[in-house]
Computed example of a mutant assay.
Amino acid sequence: MKTVSLCAVLFIFAACKTSPPASSCRYAGVVKDLSGIDGCGLVIEMKDGTILLPVEFAVPGFTLKAGQAVKFDFMELKDRASTCMSGRTVRIECILETK
């Protein structure tokens, strides 16, 4: 009985991942569709014009849509190559849609 209870508790804690608080999403940008450029797709353009190519998401389930305004945080993946000829390859650590 103890084994079943312990397994249930561990399962519940493992399943309860939450997204980081909005305060950790430090940057703002807009999702752009660059699928007209070879090897590109949806990217995030920051306010300063920097293009980011998201290839990983720390919190799954967020869907990027062209024109969407977002707050986010990222980590550059310098060891990752991309066929898109513009932008920096990144892992999105935190992302929230804004209005």
Rank of each mutant, 00 (worst) to 15 (best):
residue 93 E to D: 10
residue 26 R to I: 14
residue 9 V to L: 14
residue 63 T to F: 03
residue 10 L to P: 03
residue 54 P to E: 02
residue 7 C to N: 04
residue 49 G to L: 09
residue 72 F to K: 03
residue 57 F to D: 04
residue 46 M to F: 07
residue 26 R to H: 15
residue 69 A to K: 15
residue 85 M to H: 10
residue 89 T to K: 08
residue 92 I to H: 01
residue 70 V to F: 11
residue 6 L to T: 09
residue 92 I to P: 00
residue 48 D to V: 10
residue 55 V to S: 12
residue 90 V to F: 02
residue 16 C to T: 13
residue 69 A to R: 13
residue 99 K to F: 07
residue 82 S to M: 08
residue 27 Y to I: 02
residue 64 L to S: 12
residue 5 S to W: 11
residue 72 F to I: 06
residue 53 L to G: 05
residue 10 L to K: 03
residue 9 V to S: 11
residue 55 V to R: 08
residue 52 L to I: 08
residue 20 P to E: 15
residue 8 A to R: 06
residue 14 A to R: 11
residue 67 G to E: 04
residue 76 E to S: 10
residue 61 G to A: 11
residue 1 M to K: 13
residue 12 I to N: 04
residue 20 P to L: 15
residue 66 A to R: 12
residue 35 S to D: 04
residue 44 I to S: 04
residue 33 D to A: 06
residue 34 L to P: 12
residue 97 E to L: 03
residue 58 A to D: 10
residue 37 I to Y: 07
residue 44 I to L: 03
residue 13 F to C: 09
residue 12 I to M: 10
residue 87 G to A: 04
residue 38 D to W: 07
residue 93 E to T: 12
residue 32 K to N: 13
residue 97 E to F: 00
residue 25 C to D: 08
residue 53 L to F: 02
residue 2 K to N: 09
residue 85 M to S: 11
residue 51 I to Y: 09
residue 30 V to S: 15
residue 33 D to S: 09
residue 39 G to H: 06
residue 25 C to W: 08
residue 73 D to Y: 01
residue 16 C to F: 06
residue 97 E to I: 00
residue 56 E to N: 07
residue 74 F to C: 06
residue 78 K to R: 03
residue 76 E to M: 04
residue 36 G to N: 11
residue 11 F to V: 01
residue 2 K to F: 02
residue 43 V to D: 00
residue 28 A to S: 15
residue 80 R to E: 12
residue 52 L to N: 05
residue 51 I to C: 06
residue 20 P to G: 14
residue 34 L to A: 09
residue 74 F to E: 07
residue 33 D to E: 03
residue 78 K to L: 07
residue 54 P to M: 08
residue 27 Y to L: 10
residue 12 I to L: 12
residue 92 I to E: 01
residue 84 C to V: 01
residue 18 T to H: 13
residue 47 K to W: 08
residue 45 E to I: 02
residue 94 C to N: 01
residue 60 P to E: 13
residue 51 I to M: 10
residue 92 I to G: 00
